[in-house]
């Protein structure tokens, strides 16, 4: 009995790695003629949560080649403009996590196209069916020195909205 209590105490006291069963990252691109969504489910993530301190850390890595926008030539173009041969992955590592009621504020460094910039996002937490974290943030392609593709003489929008969903069962 004492042994069981000790194990329970250790598991609550120390930070735990949360196994993510499914994750999805979407990017929303926009041009004056049309909008599109690129989706990747090949997200490698590590989530560590400390129940006592109510904080943790998140690190995410997603290969650019895994994004599917339903038009392969557009995906090819994206891989070219983002220099995916030299910078094949987008990475995120949190620096600060704070709980606010049913949501979590995450601040971290986003590395994309060889440039690392700080981003912050507030994610909602839904525990009704497993554990689901959902949120979004906006980045600017110009902040990451990514040239904007041109279509019909007009460039695509500089702002790209990123949406993420992580779920555990």
């Amino acid at each position: 009995m004492n042994r069981l209590l000790l194990i329970l105490l250790i598991s609550v006291s120390f930070a735990q790695k949360i196994d993510i069963s499914s994750s999805e990252i979407k990017y929303y691109g926009n041009h004056f003629l049309h909008s599109w969504i690129g989706i990747s489910s090949e997200v490698k993530s590590t989530v560590i949560y400390d129940g006592l301190k109510k904080n943790g850390s998140v690190s995410i890595k997603v290969p650019l080649s895994s994004f599917d926008s339903k038009v392969s030539s557009r995906d090819s173009n994206m891989l070219f403009y983002t220099d995916a041969i030299d910078y094949p992955n987008v990475k995120f590592k949190s620096t600060e996590i704070s709980m606010i009621n049913d949501s979590v504020r995450i601040v971290g460094n986003l590395s994309f196209h060889g440039i690392t910039k700080s981003v912050s996002t507030t994610a909602s937490i839904n525990t009704s069916n497993g554990f689901k974290v959902q949120g979004s943030f906006i980045i600017k392609l110009s902040d990451y020195n990514v040239p904007r593709p041109t279509f019909m003489f007009i460039k695509i929008d500089d702002q790209i909205r990123i949406e993420y969903t992580f779920q555990t069962n």
Binding site: S65, K70, V71, S72, D75, L79
Partner: peptide, 12 residues
């Protein structure tokens, strides 16, 4: 060649 091809039908 492009970096990616697909089996499904798309506008392109």
């Amino acid at each position: 060649p492009a970096q990616k091809y697909e089996k499904r039908v798309s506008s392109m």
